[in-house]
Design a protein around this nucleic acid. Structure first.
Lengths: 356, 356
DNA sequence: CCTTATTTTGTTAGCGCTACCAAATCACGC
DNA sequence: GCGTGATTTGGTAGCGCTAACAAAATAAGG
């Protein structure tokens, strides 16, 4: 027979080797590996020791073949903010490689193109789909998936729908926290650049801002609020509108990093130092935030974390479905973080600074 | 036995189903699927038709279990330019999911931290490693890998080493092409912002620039050349130095997009319109390039493509090694592309523009 | 002590696929 | 016709793992 040796790299150690080494049956080893409970503590310890000693690591292909658990999950994204995407992928990969899940990636142009891509995923035998924003917020895409009878999980979905699985942060709370932080730093006149009106998150972030202002007894002056569209350019223009008023704010909170970076450019063009004369903060903590200068203070979503969670959630869902059980849609909310970099600082001026 | 039905999603179709449907043995179907040659054309056609009809798609877990071909490949990156990383991951994923390869991802802090990460990968049973830049350029990392006797492939390695596998573009040629394009557009006084001196690509890009200038009979004025460090800030500063000279260039070629974006900021601050008064181009086509305004004309590396190629190369390498064959190190060079966006335009002025 | 519940371990079979060899078919010439 | 070689197909076994059941060991109870 003489099959080639050393096939799995140096990792030819199988469950049988471990079993022989310990003096138990392979099944027992399997049980220990999978953390089943009906194993005597003593045996478990011996097995674990051998696993360690032999440097055993399970063959995922064999496992998924045996369990029939092998899930193929699809990943659908569109308009990938590249920065988002890479963290997203890392999270997904980490989790799915651990679960021995096969991944299929598709992209599409917005919710309109999603149906075709989903069809393709399904045809390739996907058991479920993970949606990146903005797809995760689209009721249309959700509808399509439901019609196809495919389980799915949305990542960073802002729209609160109770009937679908999603992992996200609390945009409202995050914007609230950032605003409160600005107020703590002494800012009173705070400008706000809104996000694209068709994104649900835009509204939540704006509301969070307003709530924090109101709670501090501050008014959000209309001339300090400008509409943006999540692009650098729109942030650039919005900041210009805000800053051209005689009563300038001491801080501007942009609904995403690209717009914040655009605002920084406007400030520079107007000869304003950031952060000494104007604090500017963003949202998302994309690559943009740390590649411009000064680096942006911003709100960070734990994207990789959320992505990993979404894989777990999806697999659970697929599993219960196979068992014929009903699956209760879950909405996981993860923690965001305020990242303070160089674009923000406290202000000493009680009110607006005067024109220099 | 009555195992649960519909386990692999809707994809319960196995090679046996196809075989029965056609009226041949499973083995024949397997042969067709794998494109082996000793199959009569007629049979092959029938099988393929059934595969299509039944919407069969092979179970990768079973295949890799049977072939013992299952490779586990490690991915090592450090200081990920997020934009790079996501394209990189997409390329790797696409290819490896097709090959049924398992991926393990590790990151480390520069070449120094690589050894530990590689050790970990090896311990987890990796059969080979893919290196992202700047690791792919590190002789130290290469040495470590060789000592560990692990096959590897470097992606976007600038340093031309003949004894290792790598996939990259020709940085010199790319910089040459971009420079020539600028000259075509009528630019004569062209500034250049160099990349970080510790990156080999920096030198290649600079050399390419110089060659093109020389070939056009132009001189690269020393005061138009500034050292940068691949960061936004360094591009900002370098552009300031270049532009503060009385004899201003009509174009600036930055060695990467971040620096080009920084240069745009400087130009704006100095009241120069881009591209009307100053053309600025970058290199890499990262997210930065298309998120600033004006969007950057730049050189694009087909990262996903290169990443996919690297997986193929690595798998080949692993395979021949298992067969005990010697593997000839391959250096694949892919094509770059000049992406013209809004930050560049032709110049009408024969020489330097005058101060406005 | 033996019966009955309970926990722990072992046995068997099979997941879907392909390597390997054996059998069948075909091609061609004498 | 039959042998020889080439081509095309089929059968068998097994990759590493885990359901499902069976058996053994242990605990509980009278």
């Amino acid at each position: 027979m003489a099959r080639k040796v050393g096939r799995r790299g140096g990792n030819i150690v199988t469950i049988h080797d471990v079993a022989r080494h310990v003096g138990v049956s392979p099944m027992t080893v399997s049980r220990v590996i999978n953390g089943e409970k009906n194993v005597r503590e003593e045996t478990r310890a011996k097995v674990l020791a051998s696993v360690e000693a032999l440097n055993y690591s399970p063959n995922l292909a064999a496992r998924s073949l045996a369990t029939q658990d092998a899930a193929r999950v699809g990943l659908l994204y569109s308009n990938p903010s590249v920065a988002f995407l890479s963290e997203f992928l890392l999270g997904i990969l980490g989790e799915s490689s651990q679960a021995g899940t096969q991944l299929l990636i598709e992209s599409c142009d917005g919710p309109e193109g999603a149906a075709a891509a989903l069809e393709k995923l399904k045809n390739n035998g996907c058991d479920g789909v993970i949606l990146s924003p903005p797809l995760s917020d689209s009721t249309r895409v959700a509808k399509t998936l439901q019609d196809m009878n495919l389980p799915f999980v949305g990542v960073a979905a802002a729209r609160p729908a109770t009937d679908i699985c999603a992992v996200s942060i609390d945009d409202h709370k995050a914007a609230f926290a950032m605003t409160r932080r600005l107020i703590e730093l002494g800012h009173r006149d705070i400008g706000f650049i809104k996000g694209h009106p068709n994104a649900y998150a835009s509204q939540l972030r704006f509301d969070g801002f307003l709530s924090a202002m109101a709670k501090a007894g501050l008014t959000a002056e209309p001339h300090l609020i400008a509409q943006g569209y999540f692009t650098y350019r729109s942030g650039f223009d919005a900041a210009e509108r805000i800053l051209s008023h005689k009563q300038r704010p001491t801080a501007i909170f942009a609904s995403n990093d690209d717009m914040a970076a655009g605002a920084v450019a406007t400030a520079h063009r107007m000869g304003l130092d950031v952060p000494d004369q104007l604090t500017i903060v963003g949202f998302d903590d994309t690559a943009m935030a740390s590649s411009v200068w000064p680096e942006l203070t911003t709100v960070r979503q734990p994207i990789a974390d959320m992505a990993a969670a979404s894989v777990r959630l999806l697999l659970e869902q697929i599993r219960s479905r196979r068992l014929g059980r009903e699956f209760e849609p879950v909405r996981e909310v993860r923690d965001f973080a305020l990242i303070e970099r160089q674009s923000s600082t406290f202000t000493s001026s009680g009110g607006a600074i005067s024109d220099s």
